[in-house]
């Protein structure tokens, strides 16, 4: 882990040097302005305006640069981490996310007034291809009591080799704000009372739903729900699995003046390793999910 953190720290120091060097300009202008002011020269007010403009420019530059710096650092750390976690071919883009159109095309999510997505990751783990990103479904209500409601989640879409050719929706009962109501009509109850209390399951094929959600898988889903401390949606659409997790949003603000250390990378690792954890926890790498030979052709 250390080498790339050191490299990024070196990058921060270089930028800090440039930033401190640029600080000389408003300082010189300020000093000259103060000298003219003390000499009571006729042109001192020009310098007052100049001092104001130079500091305003400097602060604007600082704010702009701070945001850009945060994105650059996040991209640099993220890219290195995804390469460590998922290999060379992993793609990470801090500012991009899964497009709204892609999510809407699944028919699972309600329309929202605004949508934000970030921390896009595209890769594969144990030969299971996936994309993931942090999303925010924002609903704004107008009128006198205008209200903005954020529904933040981590969405992971897995691409399985095997086409199960049916739909399955497992939603935590209390979490219905972002999902379309009962996308699949047939409601199914399972043997586990805890599972039935926690999740509402709808499907297009009851037998396949029982096939897919074995008692072991039900336990694993309950464990995943506890692992992420919250809301979970698990959907299977033919050969795609869409997982919605309620996770803590990754809020990172890098400062030019603050040393970049391992603790920051640990936070990013935690966020970007969710697909890995999910694939492992639910054993989605198994041949059963990814071998087309498992399909029994009807004679």
């Amino acid at each position: 882990m250390k080498p790339f953190i050191e490299e990024i720290e070196k990058y921060r120091k270089e930028k800090l040097k440039i930033f401190l060097f640029l600080l000389i300009i408003p300082i010189i202008i300020s000093v000259i302005g103060i000298v003219f002011l003390s000499l009571n020269a006729d042109i001192y007010y020009y310098f007052i305006i100049l001092i104001f403009i130079s500091w305003a420019l400097y602060l604007t530059l600082y704010i702009y640069f701070k945001q850009k710096f945060t994105n650059i650092i996040l991209d640099k750390i993220g890219s290195n981490i995804v390469k460590l976690l998922y290999g060379k071919d992993a793609i990470f883009k801090s500012k991009d996310g899964i497009p709204y159109d892609v999510l809407q095309s699944t028919g699972l999510f309600k329309n929202c007034t605004r949508f934000n997505a970030k921390l896009f990751l595209s890769s594969s783990y144990k030969d299971v291809e996936f994309i993931s990103s942090d999303v925010d479904f924002i609903n704004e209500s107008g009128g006198k009591n205008s209200n903005t409601e954020h529904n933040k989640a981590k969405i992971i879409i897995l691409n399985l080799e095997r086409n199960f050719d049916f739909y399955l929706s497992v939603c935590e009962n209390k979490f219905s704000k972002i999902y379309d109501n009962s996308p699949f009509e047939h409601k199914v109850s399972f043997e586990s009372i805890e599972f039935n209390d926690k999740f509402k399951v709808t499907t297009s094929d009851e037998t396949k739903a029982f096939y897919f959600l074995k008692p072991q898988t039900q336990l694993e889903l309950l464990e995943v729900e506890k692992m992420f401390d919250g809301v979970l949606g698990f959907f299977l659409i033919d050969n795609h699995i869409i997982i919605v997790l309620k996770t803590n949003e990754l809020e990172l603000n890098f400062s030019l003046f603050k040393k970049i250390d391992e603790s920051i990378s640990l936070k990013i690792i935690e966020n970007l390793s969710y697909p890995q954890k999910i694939i492992d926890k639910l054993s989605l790498y198994k041949e059963k999910y990814n071998n087309v030979l498992y399909d029994i052709k009807e004679n």
Binding site: E191, E206, T207, K208, F210, Y211, K214, K288, Y294, I296
Partner: peptide, 12 residues
């Protein structure tokens, strides 16, 4: 695979 399908049918 058939064994698993049978198990699912049996559970239902």
């Amino acid at each position: 695979e058939c064994e698993e399908q049978l198990q699912a049918s049996r559970r239902i």
